[in-house]
Computed example of a mutant assay.
Amino acid sequence: MAKLIGNLLSGSLGPYVFRIVNGKQIVSRKEAPGTRKQTLATKAASRLFGDAANLGTQVRKTLAAQYPDLFDRIASNKISGHLFKALSTCKYPQTGHFEFGEDSFALMERLEFNPGSPVSSMMAKIPHVGLMKNYLVVFLSELVIPREFKFPKKSIRCEIVVAVSLFRLREGLMVELAEHQSIVIEKDQVIVKPYEFKFEVPAGCLCLVTVFLNYSTVNKNGWLLIKDNDFSPGCICGAIVTPGKYQGNDQRIWKKMIKFI
């Protein structure tokens, strides 16, 4: 149904669609369902976006323990969109197969889950992620409170949580919940000393590294976590594909997911 905005229409009316673009009225005829023709390229892109969205859903599931019920549609679409761009660069049109390198998913880095409370506004130095043999090392630089690490009002403690989600893309397997480590800092510390989080990771695996800032205050009932849809700092700080082929030499339980071959 079309609505009158000033002297212009916006919406549909009969067989026509009315739009307002730069203050001007644009009118076009409605497309009948099923009449739009897709090329082979657009069909392939549509399938790939669907696969990216599927993988994005699995990424969110692995972080359920750190970020429960806080992924809204905007955050979910951002994750799927970034995965689609990354996967697009890895798929060779001549063969239709994927080729993954260590940095294939690098554009996922610095993706904020909540633009209203980004990690980058609270922490001046996002942790650096590197690969040392079969270990993923997440290095937290020294931070000065409050110049380089901020505490919101009423908060007096922050748990910095680093989580690693693992995906064997070719085999279509994943670890259901991200592995995580954390440190706790207090507002009156003044200095957050450098710290290394270290995770042993298998070969041939996509490792998505996320960091979350869980601030707390205290009331008569004890510690109270300050975390809701308006304030929930979390972001991806690293995305590395470990070289080599999975050797089956770990004790993790792998769950089925979509394959990328």
Rank of each mutant, 00 (worst) to 15 (best):
I5P: 00
G6Y: 05
L9I: 04
S12F: 02
L13R: 10
L13E: 10
G14Y: 02
P15E: 12
Y16N: 09
V17M: 13
F18Y: 10
R19Y: 10
R19F: 13
V21E: 11
N22Q: 12
G23P: 07
G23M: 09
I26G: 04
S28K: 14
S28R: 13
E31A: 04
E31F: 00
A32K: 14
A32D: 13
T35Y: 06
R36G: 04
Q38G: 05
Q38W: 01
T39G: 01
T39E: 00
L40K: 11
A41T: 11
T42G: 02
A45T: 09
S46L: 06
S46I: 06
R47G: 08
L48V: 12
F49I: 07
F49E: 03
A52L: 12
A52P: 15
N54H: 06
L55F: 05
L55K: 01
L55V: 01
Q58Y: 12
V59K: 01
R60D: 00
K61C: 14
A65F: 10
Q66V: 07
Y67H: 01
D69A: 07
L70Q: 00
F71G: 06
D72P: 02
A75F: 07
N77R: 15
S80Y: 08
L83G: 05
L83Y: 04
K85Q: 13
A86K: 11
A86H: 13
L87C: 07
S88E: 02
K91A: 01
Q94G: 09
T95N: 03
T95V: 03
E99G: 09
E99A: 08
E99F: 11
E99L: 12
F100Y: 05
G101K: 14
G101Q: 14
S104M: 10
F105N: 03
A106N: 12
E112G: 02
F113Q: 05
N114P: 04
N114E: 07
N114L: 06
P115S: 09
G116S: 12
S117T: 13
V119D: 02
M122I: 05
